[in-house]
């Protein structure tokens, strides 16, 4: 494992911890898209089916379990916690995420490394992760104001994607057999979706001002 991959995993973990902290400390999930969180839970559940079939490392197994458990916990809180669910911006979270599910599934049926149950679901999870942030970005754009923790959450999530690209570039040069076209192309698309957000994040950081997205 190279440093980019490790830092990518860590920023991913930090983003989830920030989200859990926001929900726990403020008992609020305002600014957070339930649809994006549900898509992430589905991403982890469909991708990590190999927990039952392959053992890669203790690190790998623990991280997978943490991602599954934390994403399910977040979805549960947003749906069922008496205080948290009241703060959910349901009227702003209107992105048609079923369309993303359907498109990702059809693409996975067409493009996969092997036509096998687990492999098709793996490809599905990769495609779905690439676009799962869209409901969240749309919600932020619609609400305009982004609270500090929500802004940090999306920033770290984007940093994780960017670091994974460096990881692939590194692996490409170190291991000539490393060709993961599905993951790499999807990853590039996914990272590109954050470009706009990053732009406004750095502007607000430079001006030491509150993060605001244009309407």
């Amino acid at each position: 494992m190279n440093i980019f991959r490790f830092l990518g995993d860590m920023t991913h973990l930090i983003s989830i911890l920030i989200l859990l902290l926001k929900i726990y400390a403020t008992k609020s999930c305002s600014g957070i898209s339930l649809k994006t969180q549900e898509l992430y839970a589905l991403v982890f559940l469909t991708r990590y089916l190999d927990l039952f079939t392959d053992f890669i490392s203790v690190y790998n197994t623990v991280m997978k379990l943490v991602f599954i458990a934390s994403s399910l916990a977040i979805v549960w809180c947003m749906r069922n916690h008496p205080l948290v669910r009241r703060s959910y911006d349901k009227q702003l979270d209107t992105f048609r995420h079923y369309f993303l599910l359907l498109a990702s599934f059809l693409l996975a049926l067409l493009l996969h490394e092997k036509f096998a149950f687990q492999e098709v679901l793996w490809a599905f999870s990769i495609y779905l992760e690439a676009v799962a942030i869209l409901p969240q970005l749309v919600l932020l754009q619609r609400s305009g104001n982004v609270d500090n923790l929500t802004g940090q959450y999306v920033f770290f999530l984007g940093a994780y994607r960017a670091l994974y690209i460096f990881n692939w570039i590194y692996r490409y040069f170190i291991d000539p057999h490393f060709t993961r076209w599905i993951a790499c192309v999807s990853g590039l698309v996914q990272t590109a979706l954050y470009a706009d957000f990053f732009y406004y994040y750095f502007i607000s950081w430079k001006n030491n001002a509150k993060l605001q997205l244009p309407a």
Partner: peptide
């Protein structure tokens, strides 16, 4: 060696 069907990344 890494086989084509092992996904070692998260």
């Amino acid at each position: 060696g890494e086989t084509n069907t092992t996904h070692d990344e998260l």
